[in-house]
Design a protein around this nucleic acid. Structure first.
Lengths: 223, 223
DNA sequence: CCAAAAGTGTTGAGGGTACACCCATGA
DNA sequence: TCATGGGTGTACCCTCAACACTTTTGG
């Protein structure tokens, strides 16, 4: 038979919360399986690797096909290859994780077979996908602390409060606004614009943007 | 046709230096290719993935077959899958990196088709293996700073000076012995024994051992 | 006693946290 | 003028780098 090679992606976005007191919910889109094994169960978007296409390209394409979205950040997570992870032959899955923008994720396709779930309230998924998501969550939370990837959840420009909310939602902590500001401003990756947002009934916050000459995460020689 | 799946491993050990002023050299064993493509070039040990065997098991087995050694540490590095990385069909390589003990690495098999090279003086290798080693080196150096994996280069017991030399050789820095001592002693992963090493013409150093109930590196849910 | 490495003590700089305080806007 | 979040100042603590100093061995 041989070994089947598959590509899957854990897609993260911050979506509006039903409870308006919450600032948003870290969410993941899943697809319902229509075939055995695990027919009817929810699973990560993905499919067989394409012989003529790079692995990351396949991940981005599958991502687009299920959500109609393009990722703001995409990174390989891990190659899962235990012998017993699928009982329809041996499958090695190269899994990626992606961040998409909140504004776009709202209009993302949803339907009978595609649905967004809160990242830490998932149902029982097909294969070893619960374990995969758990690992992706751990990586996301870790990387948020020492890299500048939080911007990928937001649009072109954003306020520091919005950026802080991303950290608070993902890392499940509450951060001091004053210290958060200094921490971000000391980094060259985020720069102030001269625009502000008026309309709130308080002092208009300044908009910041991400400096695209700085790379989001340090992945060493892989860039 | 389809996609071929391979497993390779970047093996690190600290071997005795020719210059006795050096404490040791970070080295990698390579195998000479006997077939096209890249016949005659040096390359990473590895081979086709085995359908009945886990990926890490395959990596450890290939490691043993080329060096007669067992790894003290083994971790997945990355899945390399660019479409143009082999021009004998599409090959996806799941690459692991491993640490082996210095004492054992000295007796490691070496021959016409297996040879150890200093990690940062490699010849031009087959495929994209130079880039793979570069990434593995980056990961090793990074992980040494925030994990307790340096012990894997040493034996059951070791002196703090030996452990410091590992850091100095791998990270290419010189470290203050006093501060290094405190840093290690504050970590629960390394514990003092009541033995000392006599014989040197100076105060006999205490031996330490690694606490096996603590895991070397934090790989999150993957353990 | 001397050289050399093991091991201890101490100080000062820098980064992060907590928190007091002022600023600018809409209602 | 008040409520609300934006934004600044500052004191304290803790970690870490630098380096002086003491200890224990072999020669």
């Amino acid at each position: 038979m041989g070994i089947d090679l598959a590509v899957s992606t854990v897609i993260f976005a911050i979506r509006p919360a039903s409870d308006p007191a919450e600032r948003g919910i870290l969410s993941i889109p899943l697809v319902r399986r229509t075939r055995e094994p695990f027919a009817g169960r929810w699973s990560l978007p993905g499919g067989a690797a394409d012989e003529a296409e790079g692995l990351a390209d396949t991940a981005a394409r599958k991502l687009y096909e299920t959500t109609q979205l393009a990722p703001a950040y995409l990174e390989q997570l891990y190659a899962f290859g235990d012998t017993d992870r699928s009982w329809s032959g041996r499958v090695v899955s190269v899994v990626y994780w992606a961040l998409v923008r909140a504004e776009l994720a709202e209009q993302a396709a949803e339907g009978e077979n595609v649905r967004w779930f809160p990242a830490d309230e998932l149902p029982e998924l097909a294969f070893d996908h619960n374990r995969i998501v758990e690992y992706a969550l751990w990586r996301l939370r870790n990387k948020l602390e020492y890299s500048r990837i939080a911007q990928a959840f937001l649009g072109e420009t954003f306020t520091l409060t919005q950026l802080r909310h991303v950290h608070e939602i993902v890392r499940q902590v509450s951060l001091d606004p004053a210290n958060f500001r200094r921490q971000i401003e000391s980094s060259p990756a985020v720069v102030a614009t001269d625009e502000v947002v008026s309309g709130g009934r308080h002092r208009p916050p300044r908009l910041y943007r991400y400096d695209t000459t700085v790379q989001l995460a340090d992945n060493g020689p892989l860039g």
